[in-house]
């Protein structure tokens, strides 16, 4: 029962998402009507999420900033082609993910990682960090830095598609259906990629699990 509920939640967009999509569509219509300034609202609303996706895919802040800006510019330039069949954020994510994928394919051999500071306002994150610090007895900052590096390494060992699925599902909280729309693949493919990616990450991050 629980499993079916989870699956349903993952497949079907939530009512909040639907409301959000309707609000976005209204703003998009304004932009299409010539109110260019209205696009700033969309940028302000989605810039952190878009940057977060790209950063977690590239593990590089500067690249992520450039790619996020390019994604917004592309969206702005082609907003007159947006028909409203999908939600705006799905459309924007698709642009961002495709730009990032092509960037990663072009610069496959380049790997300059940068680390962002973890904001511990998130209760779950603070709890995890506390647990790890208590267990290891290591300095908190050092432990967080080490964990970040390990996470980046583990993510970069995944293939581009697996990394994208993990980022969209685990970090950004998109449903399977939404990920399938963004990545232009089937829901089954999304699920299998997610399962495989988690297995690889579990193997890589084993020292930090179940301590």
């Amino acid at each position: 029962m629980n499993a079916s509920k989870t699956l349903g939640k993952a497949l079907v967009a939530s009512p909040e998402r639907k409301l959000e999509a309707d609000a976005d569509l209204a703003v998009v219509r304004q932009v299409q009507a010539g109110d260019v300034a209205a696009f700033d609202r969309l940028i302000s609303k989605y810039r952190e999420r878009v940057l977060g996706i790209i950063y977690n895919m590239t593990s590089n802040r500067e690249d992520a900033a450039d790619l996020a800006q390019d994604a917004f510019i592309k969206a702005f330039q082609s907003i007159h082609r947006f028909q409203g069949q999908a939600s705006f954020f799905t459309w924007l994510y698709r642009i961002a993910v495709n730009s990032t994928l092509s960037h990663l394919r072009k610069n496959r051999l380049r790997s300059f990682f940068s680390l962002e500071s973890i904001q511990e306002e998130d209760a779950v994150s603070r709890e995890v960090i506390d647990a790890l610090t208590d267990k290891t007895g290591v300095d908190r900052d050092s432990m967080v830095r080490e964990l970040q590096e390990k996470l980046n390494d583990a993510m970069q060992k995944l293939s581009i598609n697996h990394r994208t699925v993990v980022t969209l599902f685990e970090i950004d909280g998109l449903s399977h259906q939404e990920i399938a729309e963004v990545m232009d693949c089937s829901v089954g493919t999304v699920r299998s990629r997610l399962h495989y990616a988690k297995q690889l990450l579990q193997a890589e991050l084993q020292p930090y699990l179940n301590r």
Binding site: G52, R61, V128, E170, L205
Partner: peptide, 28 residues
Amino acid sequence: KITVEDLIRLKRAERPPAEFWARFESEM
């Protein structure tokens, strides 16, 4: 018990500093 999902979720809390967004805005 710390799971893989918990560790991955740590990345969600990674956020750039405030000055980054100012630069991002101007570049944008």
